[in-house]
Every structure is written in C-alpha cells, then in structure tokens.
Amino acid sequence: MKLRLLDKKDLSLRVKWMNDVRIYSTMHFKPPILLENTIQWFDNNKNNNQRADFVLETLEGQVLTMSGLTSLDDDIKKMESYIFVDPDIKAKGLGKKTLFLQCLYAFEILKINKVYAYIDSDNYASQKLYENIGFKKEGVLRLETKRDDCFIDRFYYGCFSEDLDSDLFVYQVNYDSKEIIFL
C-alpha cells in the first residue's frame, strides 16, 4: 500500500463516499456533495500550501481511504487531520495505516510540528484509532457540535512526532515523489 496525494481522477469516488451516510454522519458536512463543486474545490486548492489531501491505495491502484491535513496558520506549524475509509471495507485497520502514513507525511515531508483532530465524544472508533497511533486527548470542547438536534462534546487530540508510535509499521519515505509506502 502507498499514500499519495489526491488526484483529479479520485474525485468521483470521493463524492460517492462523501454522499454515503456511513461517512457523512461523523464528518460534519451535509449531502449532497456534487462532483462539479468537488472539482472546483480541487482546482482551487491545487497549490494551497495550507492543506494536503491523500489517497491510500493498493499497489494495484485500488483506493482504500481518503484523508488530509489542513492548516489555518503557516506560522504555527500544526495541521488538522481528517480520514474516511471506503465505507464497504471499514474495520480492517486501514484507518490506522492511513493515519500513521499521514502523520509521517506531516512530520517528514511537510515538517509540521503537530497534527491534531477534533473527534466527537460518541465516536469511539476514531478515539481508539487516534490513541493507538500515539495521539493524546488534550481537551474537551463541551457541547461543541450538534447531531440529531442534540448538542454533543468534541475531544481535541494532538500528536507530536515523538508521540507517533513509529514501530507500528515498516515503511519507506520517498521524498522526491512525496509518497510513503508500506514495506
């Protein structure tokens, strides 16, 4: 498997996944997500150095996950993480591999100081995923967001390069192509 940057050819699949209730129910965006708008978003962000969007794929080219890092401020050197896994193949460890590679990309290639995430208090799978990689729960944002007309808490998780459990997987970083491959 390898982590590579998102490409225009991935956008129709991205739209399909984002319109699946198993994805959008925990991601805080509302369908319908339209391909035309996603293409425009992609074109507008091609050269945006405050984000990096990824695909984890098999060596044969099957897309398994999509993820990304976004930043509001270049000076702080921290980026927010997001991940979504092909909804038909969830719970197979692909999120863990994606998050691990994404963090490596942030620390090794982008030279980011910290990766962080906001995770809903009832999203136990994501909390466990981030903790298993080395993220630490740093705070609680009380009644921060809504789901089904009810307010819920969100947790703030953070990870520095020294927190990342680099022994989880064997990998190779290709700095020229900006790809990371599992060995």
Rank of each mutant, 00 (worst) to 15 (best):
V85S: 11
S12K: 12
L11N: 05
D163A: 03
K178Y: 14
L34C: 08
N123V: 00
L56G: 03
E108V: 03
A91Q: 07
A117I: 01
R51T: 10
D74F: 14
N123L: 01
T70P: 04
D149E: 13
I83W: 02
Q40E: 10
D10N: 09
K96F: 12
R14M: 13
P32G: 06
R51C: 14
N174T: 15
F54V: 01
K96M: 11
E80F: 00
R142H: 11
F151N: 12
L3P: 02
F169Q: 05
I180V: 05
I180H: 00
I89P: 09
S71A: 09
G61P: 02
M1S: 12
L59T: 05
V115E: 02
D20W: 11
Q50A: 12
W41G: 04
S166D: 13
K46P: 13
F54T: 01
Y82A: 08
Q40H: 09
L183G: 11
E60R: 09
F155N: 04
F160Q: 05
C159I: 04
F107D: 00
K77V: 14
Q127W: 03
A91N: 15
A91G: 09
L3K: 01
L110F: 06
L64F: 09
L141F: 13
D149A: 13
C103M: 06
L104P: 06
Y118V: 02
M18G: 04
V63D: 01
D73Y: 09
D122C: 03
K30V: 13
V55W: 01
K128C: 08
I181V: 14
G158H: 04
N113C: 08
E144A: 10
V21D: 15
M1W: 11
V140G: 01
F135G: 07
N49A: 14
Y157G: 06
R4W: 02
P32I: 07
V173W: 00
